[in-house]
Amino acid sequence: MAAGHTIDALGQFELHSVLGPVGASVGFSESTLMMVVSSALTLLLLGVGMSAKAVVPGRLQALAEMIYDFVHTMCIEQIGEEGKKFFPFIFTLFMFILLGNLLGLLPFSFTYTSHIAVTFGLAAMVIVLVTGVALAIHGWHFFSYFFPAGAPIALSPLIVTVEIISYLSRPVSLSIRLFANMVAGHVMFEVFASFIVMMAGAGVVGYLGGIGPLALNVILMGFELLVACLQAYVFAVLTCIYLHDAVHLH
């Protein structure tokens, strides 16, 4: 919030423990609370939506089926037939990030995807899974991934180095992309909102002048809704592409 004449755009990302002393003792913060809420909403959507088991679906069932079909199609198209095994993981990842992004746009809410610790945790999970799958399927042959067949042997030190750096940068780019997108959007919200409050302090002219940043924030909200869905999709689809590489090696 705007304290005096400074803009504290980053205060919204500060963590506080919730649920009183019990929450404090186990490090249960707003971030964790929103993780629980988004997980509960995901389960509620599927549980309530699919409870009718109707052949002709109602609205909630249609929504649940649409998301299911969307992620399922993405898995099969990106990974291939083996994608079915990874579908529950991709679905969990997609819904966790999507609801984290969307719920974070609500007032008084908290965006856990705006914390690098969380996004890096997710990316680390993905990369450990991808490497584990690749090793389980291909064994030692997996390391040929770092040296493409047909490349000149003389260049091998350079190519292998570049390939390893590229492989290791995957979790970094994956986590920072999501983190930076979320932080940037929320910082902009805060900055424009602070402008409105500061303008309002300037009297009648300020009330009129506050309309500008307010309109910008309205437009920004539409844009952020797009970004929230897009970043969840990007994270999921990149995970699928990495899994494809792990299953097929190039």
């Binding site: 186990v26 490090g27 913060s29 971030s31 856990y112 610790a117």
Partner: peptide, 10 residues
Amino acid sequence: LTISQVVWLA
């Protein structure tokens, strides 16, 4: 709390 998020995330 920053690190506890990761544990709770897991």
